[in-house]
Design a protein around this nucleic acid. Sequence first.
DNA 1: ATGCTTACCAACCAATCGGTCAGTTGCAGT
DNA 2: ACTGCAACTGACCGATTGGTTGGTAAGCAT
Lengths: 187, 187
Amino acid sequence: MLFAQRGFDGVSINEVALAAGVCKANVFHHFATKQDLYERVLAQACDAFGRSLNALELKEQDLATRLRRLVEWHNAFLYQRPHGTRLILRELTGSPTVLERNPVFELVRRNFDRVVALLAEVSDQMREGISPALVAKVVLSLNLFGFQTERLNEKLAVAGSLATRPELQQQLLDLLLHGIEAPNHPP
Amino acid sequence: MLFAQRGFDGVSINEVALAAGVCKANVFHHFATKQDLYERVLAQACDAFGRSLNALELKEQDLATRLRRLVEWHNAFLYQRPHGTRLILRELTGSPTVLERNPVFELVRRNFDRVVALLAEVSDQMREGISPALVAKVVLSLNLFGFQTERLNEKLAVAGSLATRPELQQQLLDLLLHGIEAPNHPP
DNA sequence: ATGCTTACCAACCAATCGGTCAGTTGCAGT
DNA sequence: ACTGCAACTGACCGATTGGTTGGTAAGCAT
């Protein structure tokens, strides 16, 4: 279902019923309230995320390739499940939403920790002062924000001459791994 | 006004009128439709962003300090105008919203180009293959996503031992400038 | 005084909202 | 054949929605 596109308030039960090819009353037969329906859809999306992370195995011990694999997995997941991703993203996004006690936060925290753990295994290859948590945050943030503002990217692509997604991903990894500053330019 | 917190669909004209201390009909005296009201609020937020960028002057020629000044300015702006920021962010965010032809995209494109230009002036201090557009995108994305998921950060802070905002900003700049990988670790 | 405009309001409108209810299918277990 | 139960529906409910109408009060120029 597509709460993802227009949010909780933007979708009426009638629309949901119509999209599902059933009557409105029937929706209330399966779900107690509108919020209940929303929570179940959300829980489903959360579940998919966790299961996909389970399937990810990083055996490489090289920091660069491990990071690349992680980014690729994350990106692929986002674009394979755009609706669920948008749904979760909407819940993460600032100001309190319809759900007072939000299950999404718990999920994200857990999965974030797992990603951090994956990076911590190769933290000896990182520069001093670089924490795996920071790296995880940067990588996931960039992926998520990039996904979230996809339409924006189209418009910026023309203007700022940013590359296509795979190219951009490569450039991004290069930037993160080696930094912006030219090595021959001391402070 | 606070469309920012609950979005276009989440706020009724009655609430707006009540918050403004006037009658509902009076709102329709000043604004033709609800959408008209929304667009004006949005335009106001856009305007504030542009004006703040005008006030930013970067005279430093050092890449590192210039980047730091830019990040600081952007972050300060975001947290000084959280409502407007959230409003704009909501319009940027994926799936088509209430506004079919969205003025926000145009604004963002223009301002993005200006930021890119600011960075391009010191592009000679960047590593080969690093484009100012990419740097701008990374920096602004991280700031925006960080702002957007503020509540998430609170929860992650406990778990992932991420630092407070100013510390985090410093770490982030360090990471971007010098990269993740340890220099004494050849491929 | 008189117009004219602007800010403002109570009352109202049709449409839609989330949600209920009484009743009908169709199908599995006995 | 009878029962029970889940899936399903049309009609309906009060409340709220975006929006309209007719009218009042105040300011200001003539």
